[in-house]
């Protein structure tokens, strides 16, 4: 098996580039906590409304610098008791699940892009820098009203 000299140069370049990409995302993810949405907690999809924290959906202040937001996604909306309002510059931990089919909880122009899977709890920590009104939408097909499934979060 013979590799042309230039092919060797090209493959070394390619492999080095890919390794750098992996290194950058890996270090950023695991040592700076920039991991994508996820989580290993499960939940009974039929008992979502009785299970904490989804029995009291909405915003809860945990301590001076941390807020928790619990959201139940369902066809075709998000259960939130009042308007969602969170402060800028504080860590917001989103907890999302679904009480029916698969949805997403996606906040426009942020890194918050979470799948909501029945039986699982998805978590994502995010700190808003800019105050404003952000569009929340579902980007996983969930039925006839999928494109009507949205909400808004206000950052103050």
């Amino acid at each position: 098996m013979h590799f042309h000299k230039y092919e060797k140069i090209w493959l070394v370049f390619g492999i080095v580039a890919l390794t750098i990409f992996l290194g950058v995302v890996g270090v950023s993810a695991f040592s700076h906590d920039h991991t994508p949405a996820g989580g290993m907690h499960t939940i009974d999809p039929k008992k979502v409304n009785e299970t904490a924290p989804f029995d009291k959906p909405g915003v809860t202040q945990l301590d001076d610098d941390t807020y928790q937001v619990a959201i139940v996604a369902m066809a075709f909306g998000y259960t939130t008791p009042e308007k969602l309002r969170v402060p800028a510059g504080k860590e917001i931990v989103f907890h999302v699940t679904s009480s029916d089919v698969v949805h997403s909880f996606t906040i426009d122009n942020t890194k918050v892009n979470m799948m909501a899977v029945p039986g699982q709890i998805t978590m994502k920590s995010y700190t808003f820098t800019e105050p404003g009104k952000y569009l929340i939408l579902c980007n996983e097909y969930c039925g006839t009203g999928h494109h009507m499934m949205f909400n808004e979060i206000e950052v103050y």
Partner: peptide, 20 residues
């Protein structure tokens, strides 16, 4: 049929680097 080692593939090298 295999490429002889000395084949001139400078253009190829430049093209793949453009892809890169």
């Amino acid at each position: 049929y295999n490429e002889a080692p000395e084949a001139d593939l400078k253009g190829t090298l430049i093209c793949v680097f453009l892809v890169g």
